[in-house]
Design a protein around this nucleic acid. Structure first.
Lengths: 220, 220
DNA sequence: AGGAAGCTGGGGCGTATGCCCCAGCTTCCT
DNA sequence: AGGAAGCTGGGGCATACGCCCCAGCTTCCT
């Protein structure tokens, strides 16, 4: 009897989950051992199923996809995580990879990309959809490793209260000088906060900060 | 028989409309001649009611409030337009004023503000809620008059197709140089587009551009 | 035929960003 | 007592941004 590679599916669309199951199980050696449409239930389900890999949609109700990645990583360091999503967004790729995912492909990609990704992750590689510019991703990864070199290992990604204040003011259109005035600190400190925020969020300019602030409801 | 000052209400919340009617009609000389909760129906309704003033909520279904202002202005130059909204946003104030509104007050303001605004507009004045920093508004108005000095009278505010392309790229985080590369134009031209967009939108930096792009669904 | 609007380029200039380096202090936790 | 994390400041530097100025060309409309 062959050793099977067990995969768990997490996606809120039932039809998509079942389509994925068929695509994957056409390939010998791979088996879907379970599935869910609820991000909150991923951990409890894999606890008994102990799959080798989780294929995860980022946009599920109740729990943010990246948060699911974090929880899986906290529970088990060995399970491979493949993100399968509709979001063609460099920052999402970055966030998922630093959170502990090994792959990121798009729902608009061909079936063959899914299989390639699964095989790549199985053998220990990282796989990112060819829809993404390698240049951009490589830049982000490089920024990450620079940041990691500075401290122990995992880059700290959650913003501090002060950083959240600065992000809010920056996203509202304040310059570093105005941020400094409003918070009663020096321009240099405001600039320092802004740079730390950018490193944590994996963006390289003001536009990225504003998008993140709006996405995470820091403003508006 | 006294001459009545006729007011039309446009707000998608029925209860609010009826509350406004009571507040306004407590004041002798003022009368609500009609109302609607649908931005698309404003013009057809005022065509037969010919009110002196329209009190307008910015966030109505089917039609953007600022677009309603534009349509009213196109139909009739004399009707006073008072914006009554929940949006405490300098850029909205600016956009409404250049579109042809004479007043902007907040739903969180006191009833007395509403009456003060109505009376101010009736006598030909412009009225902006005291909740706004006079300094900021004055800056915006000044930018407007600078821009108007350059050409005949009304500043052109709708973005051209090319400008929309540039806005999208800028909001996605591209520098002027990258925008230029992607569009096959010179950096100077990209910069020129960016500045024109900022003037039209009444913002002064990248953060404002990104916020506007997200608000108007140019990206995301 | 004339004017208005859009797209394209450039000169110049002051300031702000983005990104590296460095450091001291407090607070919290082990 | 020691370390980690957060907030605070600064030096330096290349590049980008924000804002004026100028212009030619095409397209569209009256």
């Amino acid at each position: 009897m062959n050793i099977m590679y067990d995969i768990f599916l997490a996606d809120d669309h039932t039809i998509i989950r079942h389509g994925l199951r068929r695509i994957i199980e056409e390939n010998p050696g791979y088996r879907i051992v379970g599935e869910t449409g609820d991000g909150l239930k991923v951990i409890s389900k894999i606890r008994t199923l102990h799959p080798n890999m989780i294929i995860l949609d980022l946009s599920m109700p109740d729990l943010n996809g990246i948060e699911v990645v974090n929880r899986i990583r906290k529970y088990n360091k060995k399970i491979k995580i493949l993100i399968l999503t509709m979001h063609r967004n460099n920052e999402y790729v970055y966030e998922c990879l630093v959170s502990g995912a090994q792959g990121y492909i798009l729902k608009e990609d061909a079936d063959s990309e899914l299989i390639s990704a699964i095989k790549a992750l199985k053998t220990g590689n990282i796989y990112i959809s060819p829809s993404f510019s390698n240049e951009v991703i490589r830049n982000l990864i490089e920024r990450r490793s620079n940041a990691e070199r500075k401290r122990g290992s995992a880059i700290r990604r959650t913003l501090t209260p002060r950083e959240r204040e600065v992000l809010k003011l920056v996203a509202e259109g304040n310059s570093n000088k105005k941020v400094a005035d409003k918070l009663g600190i020096s321009v240099r400190t405001a600039e320092h906060h802004r740079l730390n925020i950018m490193k944590k969020l994996g963006v390289t300019n003001t536009a990225g900060l504003v998008r993140h602030a709006l996405r995470t409801k820091v403003i508006d």
